[in-house]
Every structure is written in C-alpha cells, then in structure tokens.
C-alpha cells in the first residue's frame, strides 16, 4: 500500500534546540509563544504511549516516530507540520516571533529532513508580517524536501485579504502549497470564534471547523485563487464533513450575487475542487458508517481528500482503521494519489 501522511507533528526534546538557533538577544529570552486562553485539553494533547525511551516528549525523537508511524504503516512519506510553533502567527511581538520562525525552519531541516528522506517539511510563517514571511519562503523554499508553507488558521483578518498576498506570491513562485493548521484559535492576537469564546475544550475543538469555513470562504471570494493561478491550499485538521454544505451554499449565493465577486467566473465549488485539498483527521464518524463515503463523494474526495494521522496527538487516526468499508479507488486516492499529485511525489 502506497501511503503519505499529510499531518505529522515534530517537536524538539528541549526548546534550547530552537533558541540556540536564534540571534543573541532573542536567544537569551528562550521560546515563549502564546499559550491557551485558560482552557486546555485536560488529558493533554500528546499520546501518552508515544514518549521517547527516556521520557522525551512525544514527537521529539525521530527514531520513535519512525518506529511507531512510518515503519509501522510502511509509509512512503510523512509531511511534518510544526504545529507547536504556529503561534508565531498570533504573537504580538513580531520580531521575536520571526526569530522563532526562522530558527524552527532551520531546526526542521537540520534535525528532521536530514534524518530521513521520507520526512517532508512545511515552512512555518507568521501572518503578523507577510513581507518577512515571503522572504522566509524564498530563503528555505528551494530545499528538495520542503513541500509547502504552513500557517495558523487563527487570524485577525480572514486569509483571503490582500494583506496576506505577499505570502501567496512567494509560495506560488517557489512551487509550494499553502497549508492551514488549527490550534491557535482564541490565543495571542487572534480572534475567538465568530459567536464568542467557547467554554470547554470540547466546544473549542468542535468549533475549529467553523474557523476553517470562514477561511475557505474568504480565500475563494476575495480572489486569491484567481490572482495566484498555480497556488493550491491545504486545509489540515479542520474536518471535512462541512465542505459539501458550504459549497452548496456558496454556489447558490454566487448565482445571485455573482456581480459582487465578478472575478469568480465559474461556480465557487469548481475552484475549490481544483485548488483546495482537505486532510482527513480527525475523521468524522457518522453513526451509520456508510454515510462517511457519501460525504466524501459529495466533496469529490477522490480529488480533494488526503490522509493525515496527526501523530502523536491524542486524536490521531490510523491509516488502516480510519476509513472502514469505503470504495477501494477512493481509499487509494486519499492514502496516496491526491497528496502525491499535490506534492509531486513518486514512490
């Protein structure tokens, strides 16, 4: 079975590994990113069975990750996403956050990408400074194992806005996709969900999809996909069950309101099917399991869905257990074909 995992989380054993790669002034301050707004997962977000042999944090020891994930499932590739560092995108002290951003990207290359060709990298950028982020994309984006840019889905301004376009211009120029990943919602300078603050981790985690919905709407309606004709977006860990109904609604509204967004020359859904990809974890689990495949078909999952495990987080999915009884062609597209085409990979 050919297999690509599109969301794997690597962390340093100690934050010293990051701070020692920062310039002198910032190095002495260590790494401090916006934390929670008072509500954390009471069980912790890391799998308790994924620690290193000496109690190292889950996801910090490449050999453990390979044993538990890449070797265990005979994966061809695993796309690393430094989710712990996406807080640079909501950090108010921009220069400090950019120093962390650059140090992370160097650390990812030196510790992980150099360790194994199966690891693919994502350049962490900060929406707090799109110009500096564009420069960072051009600085490290030509490394052969780098496949995309990643940024937090938590923002002050929706991601379709022209404010962000330098990031998209640089990503397209370097031939990289742009991925969004949740986790910073309600922290740092980001806004809460549109109705206000959640009151439990359960509410927060469930509402992450809501934020993804508004980011997708913004990216499509403000013309990002028209302006950057080669650029592709990856919506990581935001769920996908909502995609069909959002696209139906977008398409219906477009028929009447097309003149407000005249750059959208076709149904909005057509742009999404061509240029946006969605990762599967945490896979939705309808009571009637057959309904999962129906949802997949409604969103052209044979083109748009890509498998992700989210290893080593608490809600990670297994590639052999997450999709019971779905069509074999659909499964192969999700496990391999769609990500291989997006990232230009061969087995």
């Amino acid at each position: 079975m050919k297999l690509i995992d599109c969301d794997v989380h690597n962390v340093p054993v100690s934050m010293d590994e990051i701070s020692e790669r920062m310039p002198a002034y910032f190095r002495q301050r260590g790494v401090h990113l916006p934390g929670s707004f008072g509500i954390k997962n009471p069980m912790g977000v890391l799998r308790v069975d994924a620690q290193g042999p000496n109690g190292e944090p889950a996801g910090s020891v490449p050999s453990v990750m390979k044993e538990q994930l890449l070797d265990a499932y005979e994966m061809d590739y695993a796309v690393l996403i430094g989710a712990k560092f996406l807080g640079v995108g909501v950090h108010p002290e921009v220069d400090y956050a950019l120093a962390i951003m650059r140090a992370y990207n160097d650390w990812q290359s030196e510790i992980w990408l150099a360790d194994d060709k199966r690891f693919l990298g994502s350049i962490v950028v900060s929406q707090m400074d799109p110009i500096a982020s564009a420069a960072e994309i051009r600085r490290v984006g030509s490394q052969s194992q780098i496949v995309q840019v990643v940024m937090t889905s938590a923002t002050r301004i929706p991601l379709g806005d022209r404010y962000y376009w330098p990031i998209y211009e640089a990503a397209q120029e370097m031939g990289l996709a742009v991925a969004l990943h949740p986790g910073c919602e309600c922290t740092g300078v980001s806004e809460s969900f549109s109705s206000g603050y959640p009151a439990s981790y359960l509410e927060w985690h469930t509402n992450l999809s809501q934020n993804f919905m508004s980011q997708l709407t913004s990216i499509v309606c403000r013309g990002v996909l028209n302006e950057f004709k080669e650029l592709k977006f990856v919506f990581v860990e935001g769920g996908f069950g909502w995609v069909p109904s959002l696209l139906w609604r977008l398409d219906k509204n477009w028929k009447a309101l097309r003149s407000t967004v005249p750059w959208l020359k076709r149904l909005p859904s057509e742009y999404v099917f061509e240029r946006c990809r969605f990762t599967t974890q945490p896979v939705e689990e309808p009571l009637e399991r057959g309904e999962l495949e129906q949802v997949m078909r409604m969103m052209q999952g044979e083109k748009t869905l890509m498998f992700s495990s989210d290893y080593p987080h608490w809600d990670n999915d297994s590639p052999v257990r997450a999709f019971p009884r779905i069509d074999e062609e659909m499964k192969q597209a999700i496990l391999w074909k769609n990500a291989a085409e997006l990232y230009g990979l061969t087995s």
Partner: peptide, 10 residues
C-alpha cells in the same frame, strides 16, 4: 475503536 494499545493509556 482504531486498534491502539489501550492498556498503555492513563
């Protein structure tokens, strides 16, 4: 559920 090593849990 997904075949994890349940007994290594908390």
């Amino acid at each position: 559920h997904e075949g994890a090593e349940l007994c290594k849990g908390t």
